[in-house]
Amino acid sequence: MGKSLLVSPSPHLHANVSTTSLMRDVIIALVPASIVSVLFYGWAALLVFALSIVSCVLVEWVITKYLMKKPSTVGDLSAVVTGLLLAMNLPATTPWWIILIGAIVAIGVAKMSFGGLGQNIFNPAITARVFLLISFPSYMTNWTATQGFISRPDAVSGATPLGVIKEAIGSGSTIPEYLAANNLTSVTFLQDMGASLGELSSIALLLGFVYLLVRKVVKAWIPVSIFATVILISGIFSLINPDIYTGPVFNIFTGGMVLGACFMATDYVTSPMSTLGGIIYGVGIGVIVMMIRYFGSYPEGMSFAILIMNCVVPLLNIWFHQKKYGRK
């Protein structure tokens, strides 16, 4: 026998999945939404995407190579995903140095300081977004429409729909009054407002999410429970008083709702393992986001809601387990 045969414990086959292939699927799922935002916001958006991805990968490479002195893990593409998600959380006008700071916070603080992929408690992209939002609020809410490749009808520069409504309600007017005063219907209102890159393309995001479901990369229970909670709460509130509480459709399609629910809340590392845990996690996010939107001082609460529920994940993992065979 000339050749040295391999010997290992069973099983001797492996499914054709790897961390890299899963991350690649997430990237593919984010492509439609990225294309939509680049079409609407033009070169500026493309630059934000490129800068964000490159700086995230670079930060991870530098940290693994020079600080941790371990083999680089950039090959698993998780830094690319973080970069992509971070870019989707930024306005197209974001200056380069803010993106770099965001990448350092996302990869350096939220991910690598915990020990790298799989060890972090908080979703890196959201941590970075919240950090930037609090540190540089003027840059992070500068929704000036940049020159896109296709023009949108009546592009308005200003805050996001959530922000505008919040301001209007804060100044004592009601939603119907605001819409009437600005000569808008509730449909055109959604289309017209400036939004951060990812928010604009809810449909494209949902399309990507369907791809992830088909590829069995993620399970639907977390987004579904978030959406269900949001619809339920906003439905009840808008029925009670439609003048100051926005309705379900508005709440699902504005802000970071779809992006957050489908791509950030479903992050493997920072979401619960069990089905029941996932549903509770989703409901928690839904409740918190609606509370912030209705009663908080920020117009948008998805990031905060996810971060808060991230803290609960370790407990959910201890409390809830899958049904075991032959046991109650």
Binding site: S4, L6, V7, S8
Partner: peptide, 22 residues
């Protein structure tokens, strides 16, 4: 000399429970 190549987890305990060694 090695007569085969062990491809499991690098643990003597696992290896010993699997077979007589490489």
């Amino acid at each position: 000399p090695r007569i085969n190549t062990y491809d499991g987890v690098q643990s003597c305990r696992v290896k010993a429970s699997l077979y007589s060694g490489d």
